[in-house]
Amino acid sequence: MTVTRDEVLRLARLARLSLADDELPKLEADLSRIVDYVAELGGVDTSEVSDAPRVGPTAAPLRDDEVRAGLPREAALAAAPRVVDGAFAVPEFVDES
């Protein structure tokens, strides 16, 4: 299939990437070729495997439910680009969704 310019821009919005105009032609071409290539999976007979996809080779064991020390606040904030009053600071925003 052809991954169009609009499709690339839709994916970029979902992935929170702002792409420059000059990045688009190569991304359209590359993604179209890669999607065409991986589309071969559609031709594989998977009727013998269960429908429930298994993510990861093993089931993760549960740990004991006990309280443990986490990362100290100062260490967690040490690499933050901007900190205000012991918290990560971000620009103001209004979520209208």
Binding site: V3, E7, V8, L11, A12, L14, A15, R16, L17, S18, L19, A20, E23, K26, L27, D30, L31, I34, V35, V90, P91, E92, F93, V94
Partner: peptide, 27 residues
Amino acid sequence: DLGTLYDATRSAGFGPEVKRRILLGTF
């Protein structure tokens, strides 16, 4: 705003192959 910060940071910080794979994974 915050959304612009996310978009601009990720676009400036990631190289072409990482962007390509993020877009493919999103697709």
